[in-house]
Design a protein around this nucleic acid. Structure first.
Lengths: 243, 243
DNA sequence: TCAAGTACACTTGTATACAAGTATTATAAT
DNA sequence: ATTATAATACTTGTATACAAGTGTACTTGA
């Protein structure tokens, strides 16, 4: 019924995507942003009507979101789990787990090509900041970490990332949008942290890597706080749309 | 066309399962056992005809298997990846990663209840051996590790396990079936290793845990070798069924 | 007022149909 | 024989239909 005036997920990223992918991405954003509240029960038919599609793409979306631990599929309806403090801490754990694993592999590899690639992405991030493009910045930020993870060519570590990535992407998107408005000066520090990360990989300096990793996670922690702000703003903004 | 005389996956485990789940489990077993060879291209329509179901459950199965890194979904058809030595090593990595993480949490918890639960499962495993029930033994073996992982109540570590579990289950099933025929004496050692694991958790002895974990993994390594034997036997057995 | 049963609304899982796109094969022209 | 074009066979993604099951609400009986 609600014709959703605007999508939270960047529509330009969905140009070639299927209806199923579109629903998945948008639904994920709405849940993580708090626009769809934790505990809410989603009905396939209702969602299909809301998004103006059939149940097929909706079912696909729900299956994916369930595998990401964002919703829980029950006999009757999908229950929204969302992200509480507990989940944030857990995501933090898993990122720490896989990124330290990746680094251990990296120190035994030739990282010249990777460093080059990461430097390019960092340049892109700077441009995105310059032009106040929060979505593009988020895209590059996610790409930065994915590039590192991909570089060790480990399909099962990549599998973990594949499950974590969409949630991370949503979190970063929401956080960066809010920061571009409120805490623009943060970006200098974020860029520095990423440069530190690159340096750690280049010099294969474990201590430096751990340091930048933790600073990066501190950023994530702040992102989380920002998110709560974004959630407040959003819930204020869409409250009138309830049936 | 092929009416598949027998399923590789234990049919009794699928009594309440949907057609989609049945196809997923059976397809996984056929791929991991090598019955469906690496590189093969699976067609939705062909699979639907083979399994005697519509495309809906087949699509569901393919999506899941793709998320498990067993197949790769391409524009035209799903390409079977299967498990090479590389994948075995990677699975080993991830198990080591999450189980050590779990243990670090366990040493800070009250593990009395867990130890009780694991002892029960171990008793069940002994019974399964006594009655030569390879499938039930495999079930309990998987349950053993899942119980440990679940005990720390970490949804994102559990998410990793959820993705890994089906592959592990298939590997263990194939391996144990073969061992019950060929290397029955192995089970004494497997039981001992599991008892060691329980002791490590009970006494919160990191060194003992690492030791038993590695021995357990050595078992996995042997399981892998057994698997190749099983694959050989299977490929001999089903060769005549090709169209 | 409350208990038991019945009807209805809604759920999931599966089958089927169809549109749009892509590879392959066949045909035709040079 | 080779290349260009056209026909066809197969692919994916989506919509729709339907059966079986589950919960809810309403009625009926005491």
């Amino acid at each position: 019924m609600v014709e959703s005036k605007e999508f939270l997920y960047p529509v330009k990223w969905l140009s070639k995507a299927s209806a199923g992918d579109r629903v998945t991405s948008e639904l994920r954003m709405r849940i993580i942003s708090g626009m769809i509240e934790s505990g809410a029960i989603l009905s396939e038919n209702k969602l299909a009507a809301d998004f103006g599609v059939s149940r097929s793409p909706i079912r696909e979306a729900l299956k994916i979101l369930a595998s990401e631990n964002i919703i829980r599929l029950e006999r009757m309806g999908a229950v929204v789990i969302g992200l509480t403090e507990k989940e944030y801490a857990e995501i933090y754990d898993v990122r720490l787990l896989i990124e330290t694993f990746v680094f251990e592999r990296l120190v035994r590899m030739d990282t010249n090509e990777l460093v080059m690639e990461l430097s390019k992405i960092l340049e892109m991030m700077k441009i995105s900041i310059k032009y106040r493009d929060a979505d593009e910045f988020s895209n590059q930020d996610v790409l930065f970490h994915e590039t590192i993870i991909r570089s060790i060519n480990h399909s099962y570590i990549l599998m973990i990332w594949d499950n974590l990535k969409p949630v991370m992407e949503s979190l970063i998107l929401l956080s960066m949008r809010s920061r571009f408005k409120e805490k623009y000066e943060d970006f200098t520090r974020i860029i520095n942290n990423h440069q530190l990360y690159i340096d750690a990989i280049r010099t294969k300096d474990r201590d430096l890597m751990i340091k930048s990793l933790h600073e990066n996670f501190d950023d994530v922690q702040e992102k989380v706080e920002d998110l709560w702000m974004a959630q407040q703003m959003l819930s204020k903004g869409v409250e009138q749309e309830n049936d």
